[in-house]
Design a protein around this nucleic acid. Sequence first.
DNA 1: TTGACATGCAACCAAATGGTTGCATATTGA
DNA 2: TCAATATGCAACCATTTGGTTGCATGTCAA
Lengths: 107, 107
Amino acid sequence: MVADEDKVFKALADVSRRQLLDRLRTRGGLTLGELCQGHDMTRQAVAKHLAFLEAANLVVSVKQGRVKLHYLNPVPINDIYMRWIGKFERKQVQALFNLKQALKEEE
Amino acid sequence: MVADEDKVFKALADVSRRQLLDRLRTRGGLTLGELCQGHDMTRQAVAKHLAFLEAANLVVSVKQGRVKLHYLNPVPINDIYMRWIGKFERKQVQALFNLKQALKEEE
DNA sequence: TTGACATGCAACCAAATGGTTGCATATTGA
DNA sequence: TCAATATGCAACCATTTGGTTGCATGTCAA
């Protein structure tokens, strides 16, 4: 569990991988082929990124016939959050976040 | 704000930098010299890491005379959290986290 | 003023990273 | 069966990264 921590952070460090997570957050169960669309890199590169994300447990996958369906797993993200934001900070920081959001929407 | 996002994730990707954040979380206002203690690398390497963290806005610093005091800034971490964990997942995932903690403490 | 202490800056190097190309394997449908 | 489709695996390469050494700058105290 602790040994995997580094994998999670390394996985999140790349912009392409974060974009893949974003897409899986809005819609789960996408195949490798589908995830390739909209990324200007080779299929092999995307597959590498997905393998990275799976190794970090940020993505889980199910093989169905010749396709592989991918899903986002939010648990490791929550663990990061808990690590550096204490119980007291949590409310303050979330309030600040909501304030910033509100200001953004006013513009 | 969006342009800095990559810096935050890259900054968190290194184990030494995360350890520095951990130390600043338990006690703020440490100098470069103090932060060097307990890390088996040169002062220059630690300074590089701190510069990295400052560039990502995860650490803020104040210069006082010949020393420089460092503090943790929790805001960027909160932003990561908000990005991938929706309102609904939030309660479930935190409940799961608390359950895991409780099980750990029982052992 | 001057030496000691705390930090800043730059060049350099080995290893990891992100991407490519090429080929192999496995499943589906006609 | 056999061609098309979806994915897997491996070798290779340019760039980034994390660390080093060496030297410069700035501040405190005697």
